[in-house]
């Protein structure tokens, strides 16, 4: 993108240029103001609970007790399940697309991916509520579960939703490995598979990790679909992080809490509202950290493949 042609410079007033600066600044100020607003409005809860807000295990707003840990756990748990399911499939498909497909078939695959990405999350939620929920309930019956609304259900649903995200980004990463390296490997007698593994996958590795991180950010922020199938049960923090049982119980994520009716109740009561916005900030921090990490890795990959 750095190769756009330079235009002759001149210093006279130009309406288009002025308008460009105006609208861009306006957008920048609006978004920044929005973020500052989140921070400022959440101050009451940090005053009230301090770091207990992050480490607290209980959320009872009538008792003025605000602990976000079960929701942080819920969010991370569904995102990790989604990544574990989606990443291998998505990367596999991206490899097939770049290494073994060409021309129209490749474009065809990309269109399939983009359409999959285009399905609105409320539709995924609907499919989750009417199909996936029952399926999870039926197949997990032996575990004595109460309903099909579980963290696992949300995770599986999210896996389908982030599949196209990982695929697109993984495809970009694989494409950016120089063709000459692949040809050199083939001419040394390596099979297509050996080339794919030793050259493409290795060269694209940082980019692939970036794809997974960015998709995880997407999964953390997804609201509607998760909201519909996660059960929205507060204060569900398991004793052990590594047992399976909590996954087939209802839970709450940061986003499902923010999307729920408590948001409407909370406004007007500064502390409660501050706690809700505090959840928003935690979400924002997690997502932005993943975005930065992903972008950083992508940059690294680009530099690696250029030299």
């Amino acid at each position: 993108m750095g190769k756009a042609a330079k235009l002759p410079k001149h210093n006279r007033f130009c309406a288009i240029k002025a308008a460009s600066w105006f609208f861009t600044s306006l957008a920048f100020v609006a978004v920044t103001a929005g973020l500052i607003l989140l921070l400022v409005e959440s101050i009451p809860v940090w005053r009230h609970s301090g770091l207990e807000f992050i480490t607290g295990r209980n959320w009872f707003y009538r008792a003025r007790e605000f602990g976000a840990l079960p929701m942080i756990y819920g969010s991370l748990q569904v995102a990790v399940i989604a990544i574990l399911i989606a990443a291998p499939i998505a990367v596999g498909a991206a490899i097939f697309g770049t290494e073994f497909l060409s021309g129209r078939l490749r474009i065809g695959l990309k269109i399939v991916i983009e359409l999959l990405a285009g399905i609105p999350s409320v539709i995924y939620g609907l499919l989750g509520i009417l199909l996936l929920r029952n399926w999870v309930y039926d197949s997990m019956e032996s575990l004595d579960i109460l309903s099909g609304d579980t963290l696992l259900t949300a995770g599986i649903l999210l896996a389908v939703m982030i599949l196209p995200t990982i695929m697109t980004l993984a495809d970009d990463a694989l494409q950016s490995v120089p063709r000459a390296q692949r040809m050199a490997a083939r001419s040394l007698g390596l099979t297509a598979t050996e080339t794919a593994i030793n050259i493409s996958l290795r060269g694209a590795f940082p980019g692939l990790i970036a794809a997974v991180l960015l998709a995880m950010g997407r999964a953390l922020g997804e609201t509607i679909a998760v909201f519909l199938v996660v059960g929205r049960q507060d204060n569900q923090l398991p004793e052990s992080l590594f047992s399976f049982q909590p996954l087939v119980e209802s839970g709450q994520t940061l986003t499902s809490k923010l999307g729920g009716s408590e948001t409407n109740i909370a406004y007007g009561e500064p502390l409660h509202w501050g706690a809700m916005l505090g959840l928003g900030i935690l979400l924002m921090i997690m997502v932005t950290a993943l975005t930065f990490a992903g972008l950083g890795l992508q940059n690294l990959a680009r530099r690696k493949n250029e030299t």
């Binding site: 986003t255 979400l283 997502v287 932005t288």
Partner: peptide, 10 residues
């Protein structure tokens, strides 16, 4: 990357 729900809250 900002989740849609945060747009809604703001």
């Amino acid at each position: 990357g900002i989740p849609g729900i945060l747009f809604g809250i703001v």
